Simulated assay, not measured.
Amino acid sequence: MFTGIIEDLGTITNIENDRDNLHLTIKSAITPELKIDQSVAHNGICLTVVDISGDTYTVTAIKETIEKTTIGHLQPNETINLERAMKLGDRLDGHIVQGHVDQVGVCTAVKEENGSWYFTFTYDSSLGNVTIEKGSATVNGVSLTVVNSGKDEFSVAIIPYTYAHTNFKHLKAGSNVNLEFDVLGKYIQKLYEARL
């Protein structure tokens, strides 16, 4: 479980294809605190640490993860959002995030407005995912409040701190992002569909 509160920005130092798998090596300030077998969210994708060397660590993505997220499009020197799994008893500052990406969305607009930014994202609503006004959504692992909700799109407002400390500052119209929808909303949607 994660909270969607980003701890650090990591830099991809190496990407290696190994049959259907993808090994990513990441440089991060949190590396000395990691251990092998630990779960870390990378742009919202929960991956297991498989190797640690100095200030870098390596994770492996399998074929399903590559097909359902943006991880296969990452490049060396790219910046990614990082969060370690939450500890039992810690405060839940964001919302409950599983690190299981529901689908890839597309940023369609970025609007700066008096010191904050509004980002709009579209997604394939036929997959059964929904957002609601003032509900939660996770974009590239960042826990956010939905400020505008439509059938297949939603917007979020980004404060200067979040803009400076996540990779939101690199997003633009046309950028693909990992989306994880609110887990409670997903259960309610499934129950509703089952009753129809």
Rank of each mutant, 00 (worst) to 15 (best):
K63L: 15
G174H: 06
I30Y: 06
V177I: 13
R91G: 12
L184H: 01
A85W: 08
N81Y: 01
A157T: 14
G105K: 03
S143Y: 02
D37N: 09
V106I: 14
I36M: 08
V130M: 09
H95V: 02
Y57D: 11
G105Q: 00
F119Y: 15
L47R: 06
Q38V: 06
G72S: 03
E33T: 11
R19E: 15
N167G: 05
E67P: 03
S149F: 00
A109M: 08
C107S: 05
I66P: 01
N114D: 13
V146C: 00
I26H: 07
C46N: 05
E33F: 13
T162M: 07
T131K: 00
G135S: 01
G115C: 06
K169S: 13
S53Q: 12
D55A: 11
E180Y: 03
F181W: 00
R91Q: 15
D51M: 13
T162V: 10
V50F: 09
L47T: 04
N167C: 06
A109Y: 09
L24G: 05
K169T: 09
V104Y: 00
A173G: 02
E180F: 03
G128H: 05
E67F: 10
Y161A: 14
I132T: 10
H165E: 12
K190Q: 13
H170I: 06
W117R: 07
H170W: 11
I30Q: 03
T79Y: 12
N148K: 15
F154W: 08
V146Q: 01
Y57F: 15
L9F: 05
R19C: 12
S175D: 02
F168W: 15
D8I: 04
L127R: 13
E67N: 10
E7T: 12
Y123E: 01
L184R: 04
I96V: 13
L24P: 02
V142N: 09
H95S: 02
S126C: 09
V110R: 07
G54I: 10
V40P: 04
D8V: 04
T31I: 08
K151C: 05
T25K: 14
T69W: 02
E112D: 12
N178V: 06
T120L: 02
G105L: 00
H73M: 09
Y192T: 15
